[in-house]
Design a protein around this nucleic acid. Sequence first.
DNA 1: GACTTCCCTG
DNA 2: CAGGGAAGTC
Length: 664
Amino acid sequence: MNLTPPDQSIHKPNDGCLEDNKADLMLPCFRRGMYEEPLSSYHSGSLISHLLRKTIHSKRPALNNAHLYLPPSSVSGAGLVESGSTLAESAQEDRSSMSSKDSLGESSSPGGHASGMSAEPERPLSEHLQAKRARVENIIRGMAGSPSDRSHGEGDGVEGETGRYGTEVYKESKRKRKLPQHQEHSHSTTLTTTSSANISKDEECHKLREQLQSMQRLLRQLQEKFLQMYDHGNSENEEKGEGDFQEDVSEAQLDLSIDSDNKRIGNKERMKADGGYLSTERDQKSLQEMLKCELSRAVSESVDMVFRKLSVTLQNQSPQPQACQSPEYTNVEKRAQQTCAPELSDSEDISKSRLLEFYESTPVPSPEHQTEALSLVVRKPTLNQLGSVSQQVKRPYPLHQAPFQFSYSAPLHDSQILEHLLKYGPHANFGGIPCLPPSLDRSSPDSMDLPWESIAMRSKVSSGHLGQHHRPGALGQVTVDSLCLPHVKMECGDLQSMAERSTFMSLNIQEGLTPNHLKKAKLMFFYTRYPSSNVLKTFFPDVKFNRCITSQLIKWFSNFREFYYIQMEKFARQAIVDGVSDVKDLAVTRDSELFRALNMHYNKANDFQVPDRFLEVAEITLHEFYNAISLNKDTDPSWKKAIYKVICKLDSDVPEEFKSPSYL
DNA sequence: GACTTCCCTG
DNA sequence: CAGGGAAGTC
């Protein structure tokens, strides 16, 4: 979808994506293996369609003869036009593919499909139809309890439904008028030849229609989500939608009822009856019932299958069974819902969360090849990996619960994913948006601790360069920010967001020393040349100390000293060569070459104000070397030890701020 | 054994 | 420039 301009996409969700880009974009992904293909490459419209098609295909064997068929009446009458051409084309595509695979394909020729659509959009409601519809509604109501069905249909018609209905109907009508004449004709022909003679074909058509409607509902739910994301709280889309909807007010009103799904089914059924597809009410009942159950199950199962596969793949990666159940999280979730998706129904979230979950998880390259646990796969972000941030996105709720259980975190999650879709468009890689991972993290501060810590604990990460963007004091901000409630429309971060995240992560104990630690150690050298183990432990609180780590840190300072003393000896000897006669002429200032050399070594970025005390110590050291060399003490193999003894007493306290794990 | 320095390597 | 190894020191 062309979601870059949010306003447009909000009010006309089916603009562009449904009429302009669909065909060429959808076909490719349709033919490829769903699981092998990174969804990031999908147009969001095509993504949805792709999922929906997958549903169709996956369920096809089970449905057997229940092939998809998009009845014109259901499209216009039920107001599901939504996907308009997208779904229509997907139906065509399905049918064509079915034709090649199944012997029944001929019953649903593209022409027939098209013509039906053009035939009935503006058909007025008759009392007869309404009566019929009411009866069918009663029937359908009985099976409304199906969770999968509800997940697809519930929540559809509450708000903004009318608007989209009207828009969709209008658009669909316009689109149909453009259909080639020969298509309509061929469709009419098909109808005449099949309506009375071949009920099985009609069944196929019905099933096709039903399935498509289910998909349309899913798609519409997603679109509604978009609307809610950007119009939450306002009635803008309602107004706009109703304006567009004037073409078919009665239809819209039918779908305004809470149980819009049932209504819609009934509406569709009315249309079918009106179209003469089914001759008796009993036929309608049985077929409706069977198809309804079958297709709703098919759709849900197919979608579930998709996510199940993903979850199985990712399940081992980050088990956090309690994460989303904690009171804190619940509160966060509640507020998140209030913020971004106040009107979501649970069932609506189920189906959407599945789709979105899939979408979210797809950026992970080759999920099916993922054999590592998530915490091992997920890497600490690095600045040069912004493009793959999505890989770091931790799931805010347990994967193994996601496919079949409603997750309380789903609404927030969805809204964020959708927000991304709206903001950046379908082609934008989720990983490319720095704001998404942080927002996700914020959504579940409880659950994000564990994985990050486990990451830190398991891997000796060398992402310290991230921290170079941090400054003392960032810790507090980061911590508070991380615990903040999700900002649905939070300003999309930038490197700073990533930096904050990494800062937060640095709070976790690490087994390995990072370049950040090294840099910090170098800066500490300006204060202490001989830090004790306790000092090191105090000033590297985010490091899990063991013998190896301690040795490494000590070695670092040993190397620092080595360089330091080498420089001292070098400049002392140079002074002697230069004929400096009085040690008092050897001053170390910030302009001194010696200081520059040292500063370059320990403070390469020159972003740290070297304390004056260091200059004094350096000067003292230089004097010691000058004196020793002048007195020919350097002939003694251990002549430096006396100097070391002096210098080690000149250590000063390291400033408190160095104790912050996020100092750098 | 822990720690340091020196020397050396890549 | 970081780090490893050897040797020395405590």
